[in-house]
Amino acid sequence: MAQPTSSALRALALEYKSLQEEPVEGFRVKLVNEDNMFEWEVAIFGPPDTLYQGGYFKAHMKFPPDYPYSPPSIRFMTKVWHPNVYENGDLCISILHPPVDDPQSGELPCERWNPTQNVRTILLSVISLLNEPNTYSPANVDASVMYRRWRDSKGRDKEYENIIRKQAQAAKMEAEKEGIVVPLTLEDYCIKTRARPAEQQLDMTDFYDDEYELDDDEDDQLSASDYEDGDDSGNGES
């Protein structure tokens, strides 16, 4: 199964390069380990004028060997209290679900995975999910109940809001320790994240030429074992 992986590598290298050159508002991406294109670290800035304002949330994205035919998974490394985030940080969002025929699912079918979805479209969906949780298929039922109380009381019941703001604040302090300034106004959020130069740009030709065009054997080694491990552990814990 060398070739599906070479497609995946090629697609990921292309996207990585593009996101370095033209970042999505409110996000930064880098590789968890420079030798492995299949695992990315994503940092999400809480959007201004929302409960998440000031927050800096880290997550890992894991891509399957048959990406982009199958979706990646996302796990938050920062604590996130949210109806669609499991205890262990796994994010449950419909865009990352394969298109099974399941009329009972609470998700809109139009949000399912297809091969034209990409990191950019995923990250934009994640940011919109932060503010608009899907309470029809909650991963964290307590958070979902609390969120609905907050929403239905038009913000008078502050339990949900307080938890989120506290987490955002803690995450912000964490970011400051790392020397990262979290944008607080809409203006900074949009402009700064756009203007930031690509910092740790990798030489993509390495990935592209070596893995995609030529050497099938190397592809074999790279992907299968890497993914198999990740997949198993992710599954056991969720």
Partner: peptide
Amino acid sequence: KRSPQWSSENTDVNQDELILQ
């Protein structure tokens, strides 16, 4: 129509994943 489903649907997540695998 869907809302009563969510609690049971929630436990099916892993099963879906297993079937898919």
